[in-house]
Amino acid sequence: MNEIISLLESLIDSKVAHYPTNHYEEDQTVFPIKRGNEVLGILKLDQPFNEFSRIDQVAIENASLAIAIDLMKDHALLENELQFREEVFNQMIEGISEKDIHRIIHYFNWDEDWHVQCMIIEGNDEPLWRNDQIKDKERLVRSIEHMITDICGHSLILTQAFQLIVIFPSLHVDTTHNIIKNIKSICRTANQLLFGVGRQTTIHHIATSYQEAIRSIGYAKSSQDVNIVEYAKLGAERLLHNIDDSTADLFIRDKLGKLLIKDRVLLDTLKAFANHHKQHNETAAYLHIHVNTLYYRLKRIEALLDINLKNEQDWFDIVIALRLFVASNKN
Rank of each mutant, 00 (worst) to 15 (best):
R142Q: 15
I167F: 03
H277K: 11
F251G: 03
L171R: 06
P169L: 03
E86G: 04
L194E: 15
E51P: 04
T202L: 11
L309D: 00
N90I: 12
Y219H: 12
K15S: 06
H23A: 06
I252N: 06
N90K: 14
D56G: 13
E145V: 03
I180P: 08
N22D: 05
F162M: 14
G257M: 06
I289W: 02
D150W: 06
Q83M: 05
Q224V: 05
C118A: 05
I134T: 09
E38K: 07
N331R: 11
Q200H: 15
P169D: 01
E26Y: 05
D306K: 11
T293L: 15
V58N: 07
I320E: 15
T21C: 00
L156M: 13
I60C: 02
G95F: 08
A207C: 10
E112T: 11
L11K: 08
D314Y: 06
T189L: 12
E302P: 05
P32H: 02
T293E: 15
I243E: 01
G123E: 04
L298E: 01
M119T: 03
A63K: 00
H75D: 11
A274W: 07
E61Q: 09
L240V: 00
S222A: 05
L240S: 03
L234W: 06
Y296R: 13
K278R: 09
D249I: 04
V197A: 05
V141W: 00
I60T: 04
L234K: 03
T21N: 04
E282H: 13
L240G: 08
I186K: 04
D174G: 14
M119G: 00
Y231T: 03
I12W: 01
E51S: 13
N2G: 05
I67W: 08
L324C: 07
Q28C: 14
Q211D: 10
R199E: 10
T175R: 07
E98N: 07
I167Q: 04
I214W: 09
L7Q: 15
A68I: 04
E25W: 00
E9C: 06
D174N: 10
H23F: 07
I167G: 04
G95D: 06
T21Q: 00
I12D: 01
L156G: 08
V319T: 11
W129P: 00
H205S: 15
K99R: 09
R238Q: 12
P32S: 02
V229T: 02
L240N: 02
L193F: 08
Y24P: 03
D254I: 12
K184R: 11
N227P: 03
T247G: 01
L45A: 10
L11Q: 06
N275R: 08
S14E: 15
I318V: 07
L234R: 02
L164A: 13
S53D: 10
L324N: 05
T208D: 11
L298R: 00
R103Y: 06
N131G: 12
A285K: 15
C118R: 01
K271D: 11
S10G: 06
V30T: 04
I180L: 14
E145M: 08
H115F: 10
V39D: 01
Q163E: 12
A220K: 07
K278C: 12
L128G: 07
N242F: 14
E237R: 03
G123A: 01
E26T: 08
I180K: 06
L140R: 01
I96T: 02
T149S: 14
N50H: 10
V88Q: 04
D74M: 12
H177G: 03
K258W: 11
I203W: 10
